[in-house]
């Protein structure tokens, strides 16, 4: 027994103890980095362009990125298991076009909204079945769903579908003033932001406080071990795709409510934004480690980047996807470096 005690915690003194303590928290490091980057961007933005650190700008940051936050939360679940969902952007396109057309055709708007969410659920379930029961690689299955969603949206319409001005859906995009600041510098939120906040809180609860959530992490660590431990691997993998699909549907509702219209080309490239946000927030692309709150920070980093690009004016808006892609690559490379360091 004495031999055992010497093994795990050999001489926890001095530098080694510090190194050990640091290595214990190595997986929070990327998330901390994301927070630092976010703060750094705010400070830089304020210094370079001004009018960043004010209620108005920060409120808008939340309002304009509520849908991205919701998407990112869904993708965090999938990526934590070591999977991927490329269909999120296309699901939003189909769901929002279908929803707006149904509402304009006289459907009960609330029923239509429910259907928008359920469309996402159906896409997620289809991906899940392909991945789990037919062992199609996740990116192939969700890529097929991406083409399908985009194709179905194009069948419905190829022009912008405008939401009626009195549609209740628009109420989800109404700006609610919470604090009346000087001039227009108010704290403003929309029901969409509240929905996003609830989604984040719920996801945090599920991931950290339920067995399903812990199984998600276990699968990402080692799917084989998780199965041998008797955890419900198959069901959980189904769930993460269903969650991702459903949240895509919900993001469609929130986005459409803010924009007031829907089109078949909505959400092109959003899968990249959502993956980048998740990865920037510290979730390992190979699964098993990450935090949903980090993903939220990641989404806000991307949102803030758009604000800064707009303010700067010198960078063409077309270059945004190039920059997002570049950032994603840099973070993935960083992850590999950290992992390689840890293995040593």
């Amino acid at each position: 027994m004495s031999a055992l005690t010497t093994h795990p915690t050999a001489e926890p003194t001095g530098v080694r103890a510090l190194a050990k303590r640091l290595s214990l928290h190595l997986d929070t490091l990327p998330t901390a980095a994301a927070v630092v980057i976010f703060i750094g961007m705010i400070v830089y933005g304020e210094a370079a362009y001004g009018r960043i650190v004010q209620f108005n700008t920060l409120s808008n940051l939340l309002i304009n990125n509520a849908h991205l936050v919701i998407l990112t939360v869904g993708l965090t679940f999938v990526i934590l298991t070591g999977g991927i969902d490329l269909s999120v952007g296309a699901v939003i396109a189909f769901s929002s076009v279908a929803g707006v057309m149904l509402m304009n055709a006289g459907w009960n708007p609330w029923l239509a909204m429910l259907l928008m969410v359920l469309i996402g659920t159906a896409f997620g379930a289809a991906s899940g079945v392909l991945v789990q029961y037919f062992h199609v690689q996740p990116f192939i299955a969700t890529l097929a769903m991406m083409f399908l969603g985009r194709g179905l949206a194009s069948i419905l319409s190829t022009v912008p579908e405008r939401l009626a001005d009195d549609s209740p859906l628009r109420s989800l995009g109404t700006q609610i003033e919470i604090y009346d600041g000087p001039k227009v510098d108010d704290i403003v939120i929309t029901p969409g932001v509240i929905i996003a906040a609830i989604v984040v809180a719920a996801a945090f609860f599920v991931l950290h406080r339920t067995r399903t959530g812990r199984t998600v992490y276990a699968i990402g660590g080692s799917e084989q071990s998780a199965a041998l431990m008797g955890l419900p691997v198959a069901a959980t993998k189904m769930w993460v795709y269903i969650i991702s699909g459903t949240l895509s549907g919900l993001a469609a509702v929130v986005y459409t409510a803010r924009l007031g219209s829907a089109q078949n080309i909505t959400g092109i490239g959003w899968e990249l934004d959502a993956i980048a946000a998740t990865v920037i927030g510290g979730t390992l692309l190979t699964g098993g480690a990450g935090f949903v709150l980090g993903s939220v920070v990641g989404a806000l980093v991307l949102g803030l980047m758009n604000v800064l690009i707009t303010r700067d004016g010198g960078i063409p808006p077309e270059a945004t996807t190039i920059i997002t892609g570049g950032i994603l690559l840099v973070f993935v490379l960083l992850q590999r470096a950290v992992l390689a360091r840890r293995r040593e």
Binding site: R211, R214, G221, S222, S225, A226, M229, G230, G288, A289
Partner: peptide, 20 residues
Amino acid sequence: VNLCANLTIGENVMLGHEVR
């Protein structure tokens, strides 16, 4: 060893049997 190296010792012991 068929455990999940990305989780804590306690979690590995209790996975699927966590106290709720």
